[in-house]
Every structure is written in C-alpha cells, then in structure tokens.
Amino acid sequence: MTKKLLMIDDDPDFVAGIKAILDNAGFEVEVAYNPKEGLHALQTKQYDLLLLDIMMGRGAEGIMIARKLRKDVKLREMPVLIITGMREQIAFLFPGEPIHPRFVEVDELVEKPVEPKMLIEKVNSLILTAETKKAGKK
C-alpha cells in the first residue's frame, strides 16, 4: 500500500523539488501551500506522515500547527518531519544556536537544504516507528 504524505510548505520551488523526490520513491504526496489549508486537510483526511515547514504566513506558523497537533487526540500519534530553513531566514537573531524541536511527540527535524537520500530514509523510519508503536498499543 502506498503511504500518503501531507506536505505543508509555502515555497512552491522547494515543494516541487521535495515532491519530485518523494514521488520517485513511491509515496503519494499531497501539498498545502498555507497553514490554514494544511490544518483543514489534516482534520478531514488521513495521512501517514506530515512534512512541516516552520516559517510560513505571519511568522513561525508551523509551530502553531505543531502545537495544535499535540493537543489533538486523533492527530497526536502522527509522525511529523519538520523541514525548516529558519536558521537562514532569521539567522541574524540567534547566530549558531540550535533550533529546539519537540513540539509534537513523534517528530524529527531536518534543515534545508535537504539531502534526498537522507530525506527518504528519515521518512521511512518515522513511518515504521509510528506503525510499530500503533501495533504495540493494540
């Protein structure tokens, strides 16, 4: 069965690149170009993994989505891969300091630019750990 992924990112060029990589790897990728649409899609449809950008809309709106996911009982279990270029986007603020993730229970953080091989590996491992966790609960 093909895995369904949702990608929320506002940069069309970046989305095109990542989508091409994941399409070739045999995933089914849906894209939402703004956080609002993305959240709506998450609440109405079922996905195996979420690819999330941080800097969208009015600022760090990706974080707001992550926080909402964490509070949602149904969506809490979904693995999230955060892909962000925020270090470059607001580099002047905290030079050299780490981004602190942990906004959702199951997540991983990758910084732009993304290595295709590593991306696919991470996506696969995240889906796998989420599935084994689910199976263990049942």
Binding site: D10, A16, Y33, M56, G57
Partner: peptide, 19 residues
Amino acid sequence: MTDTISFSQEVSNLLYAAE
C-alpha cells in the same frame, strides 16, 4: 511536474487569515 502556485497566491498565503 507538479502544479505550482502563482506569485499572487504565494503572497496571499502570507497574509493573515487570507481566504
């Protein structure tokens, strides 16, 4: 290729609560 969005759509996505 994927269908991408226009520049005006891109800008609209940056607006607060843009519908």
